[in-house]
């Protein structure tokens, strides 16, 4: 499982690199969609069918919105040559990345090996959860019963985002 996931994530890295370096903005957006669709395969391999259903539809809608924005424009990234500031920011990004990678590899030693997970809370969530909540789907039980406040916050954030979009995109105020 470790090797399979690694190969798929490798493809995702290639897609992400192409999305960042493409000249045409439309192909960049479509490469971003490729990364999202690969994530669906990873979710199915990791035994998370709920997430796979959500992600495959959400990725399609994100692609539609991004394409709708890009098609209005000239679609060309004005490809400037790297000047001094470009070099500085590239070197800064690579240095920051290496530093973060080092700390990540140090801190990852405290995690379990992939597939041998032994999270302390997992036992309490799984044992008797079906009897406590009455729901056969454990994810629904966790989302709406044990972690209900998370879901409430999520609903409020969603409404706030919709209000923000309506405020930004309004051209004419009410007379």
């Amino acid at each position: 499982m470790d090797l399979t996931i690694s190969i798929i994530v490798g493809f995702m890295i290639f897609g992400a690199l192409y999305a960042i370096h493409a000249r045409d903005l439309l192909s960049s957006v479509i490469a971003c969609g490729l990364v999202g669709y690969s994530l669906v395969i990873c979710f199915l391999l990791l035994k998370a069918p709920d997430l796979a259903i959500v992600q495959i539809v959400v990725d399609t809608i994100t692609l539609i919105i991004m394409v709708a924005v890009v098609l209005d424009s000239s679609r060309e990234e004005s490809y400037l040559k790297l000047d001094t500031q470009g070099y500085i920011s590239a070197v800064t990004a690579i240095f920051l990345g290496l530093l973060l990678l080092y700390f990540y590899t140090v801190s990852i030693q405290s995690l379990d090996v992939l597939g041998k997970s032994s999270l302390r809370m997992a036992k309490h969530y799984i044992e008797g959860a079906a009897q406590k909540t009455g729901s056969a789907n454990l994810v629904t039980g966790v989302v709406f019963d044990f972690r209900g406040y998370d879901t409430m916050g999520e609903a409020v954030v969603l409404v706030t985002a919709v209000l923000g979009v309506l405020t930004i995109l309004r051209l004419r105020g009410k007379k």
């Binding site: 069918p49 709920d50 259903i53 959500v54 539809v57 959400v58 809608i61 009455g134 729901s135 056969a136 789907n137 994810v139 629904t140 039980g141 989302v143």
Partner: peptide, 14 residues
Amino acid sequence: GHLTPGGGFAGGVV
């Protein structure tokens, strides 16, 4: 949603 994979979020997006 409480029996099979899915639920409010997945169905709403569909």
